[in-house]
C-alpha cells in the first residue's frame, strides 16, 4: 500500500466505522470532547457522506469536566447537528461523589466507569466506538480494534479474539457488547497533523493561554471553578499553560507552553520528552491502573 500516512490512517478508520454500521444494530460513539473524539467525529462525517453519521454520540458527563469543554460540546452539536446524548450518574451526584472528597479512583469509577455502564444498558447499545489509540498506554497497545466485552462490560485480555487482516469478527453473544477503536493505529503526532490538515475544531484548552493554576502532586492543576479547595501553602499562579489531554479538571495536569496554534503544538511535539498520559492522574494511581479500569468496564 503506497498511500501517504494520514490518508492510509483515514481510510483504515473509515473502513472500521462503516463495518460497525454494517454489522451492529444499535451502535454509539463515545464522545469525550477531546482531540481524539473531534477527529473521530470528523471521520464519521466522512465515512457516511452524503448521509449523516447513522448513530448517536454519547457524552458521559462526570460533572467535573472543564467548563470550556461543555461549551465547546454544545456549540459543536449545534453547528454540526449530530445527535448528542448526555448521561450523568445521578446516584453519584446524589451521594456527592467528587475527586476532592472521594479521591480520583472512586470518583472515576462512579462517575465515569459506572456512568458509562448505566448509559450503555439504558440505551441497549451493542457497539460503542471510541477514539482510544494504542500508543497512549501499554495495555491499550495490546487491545484489538474490535474488542469484546462481557455482560458486565469487562475486558478480559486473556480471551481476546485473534484479529487477522481487516476481517473482523463482529458477532457478539447475548448480553455481550463490542468496543471499537477506529484510531487504534494513530499516534498523538498523527492526530495533530490531521487536525492541522483537515482544520478540525478543538477545545481552546489545547492552546496555550494564561490560566490560574496550582502546583499539586507534581502537576499543574487549573482552578476551573470554586469547587476546588486550596491546601495549606498552595498558591494560585497565573501561568502560560496548555493541556495535552482533557478530562476532569482536578485530575488533568497542564504543561507550561507557549504553543498557541496547531503548528506551534506540532513544533512543540517534535521536542517533547514525556508522554501525553503523564498529565493524567488516574493512569498512575497504581501499576497496571489502565488495565484494571478496563477490566471493570472503563472504555
Amino acid at each position: 500500500m503506497s498511500l501517504a500516512n494520514l490518508r492510509r490512517l483515514e481510510a483504515e478508520a473509515i473502513h472500521v466505522l462503516r463495518e460497525v454500521v454494517a454489522t451492529f444494530s444499535n451502535p454509539v460513539v463515545l464522545y469525550s470532547i477531546g482531540k481524539d473524539s473531534s477527529v473521530l467525529l470528523h471521520l464519521a462525517l466522512k465515512a457516511f457522506y452524503p448521509a449523516k453519521p447513522p448513530f448517536p454520540f454519547l457524552h458521559v458527563d462526570t460533572t467535573w469536566k472543564f467548563r470550556e469543554m461543555i461549551t465547546f460540546r454544545d456549540r459543536m452539536t449545534q453547528e454540526l447537528g449530530f445527535n448528542l446524548l448526555v448521561h450523568i450518574n445521578q446516584d453519584g451526584v446524589d451521594q456527592g461523589v467528587g475527586p476532592f472528597t472521594h479521591g480520583s479512583n472512586l470518583h472515576t469509577h462512579v462517575m465515569k466507569t459506572m456512568a458509562l455502564r448505566q448509559a450503555l444498558e439504558k440505551y441497549r447499545f451493542d457497539a460503542a466506538l471510541a477514539g482510544a489509540r494504542r500508543d497512549e498506554e501499554k495495555s491499550r497497545a495490546k487491545e484489538r480494534v474490535f474488542s469484546i466485552r462481557n455482560a458486565q462490560h469487562g475486558w478480559d485480555p486473556q480471551r481476546q479474539r485473534p484479529e487477522m487482516w481487516k476481517t473482523y469478527n463482529t458477532r457478539v453473544g447475548a448480553g455481550e457488547t463490542m468496543r471499537v477503536f477506529p484510531l487504534s493505529n494513530w499516534t498523538e503526532f498523527d492526530i495533530w497533523q490531521y487536525i492541522l490538515q483537515e482544520n478540525i475544531a478543538i477545545v481552546p484548552l489545547y492552546f496555550a493561554a494564561r490560566r490560574p493554576v496550582v502546583s499539586r502532586d507534581g502537576m499543574l492543576i487549573m482552578i476551573d471553578d470554586d469547587r476546588m479547595p486550596l491546601e495549606p501553602g498552595e498558591e494560585v499562579m497565573d501561568r502560560m499553560v496548555r493541556f495535552r489531554t482533557l478530562g476532569c479538571y482536578p485530575l488533568t495536569g497542564a504543561i507550561d507552553s507557549e504553543a498557541a496554534t496547531v503548528p506551534d503544538i506540532l513544533r512543540e511535539m517534535l521536542t517533547v520528552r514525556t508522554s501525553e498520559r503523564q498529565s493524567r492522574l488516574i493512569d498512575t494511581d497504581e501499576a497496571g491502573a489502565m488495565e484494571k479500569k478496563k477490566r471493570e468496564g472503563y472504555f
Binding site: 499516534t187 503526532f189 511535539m269 521536542t271 508522554s275
Partner: peptide, 10 residues
C-alpha cells in the same frame, strides 16, 4: 510516542 527530533525544523 511517535516521533522525535532534537531541533524543531524551520
Amino acid at each position: 510516542m511517535s516521533y522525535l527530533q532534537s531541533v524543531p525544523p524551520h
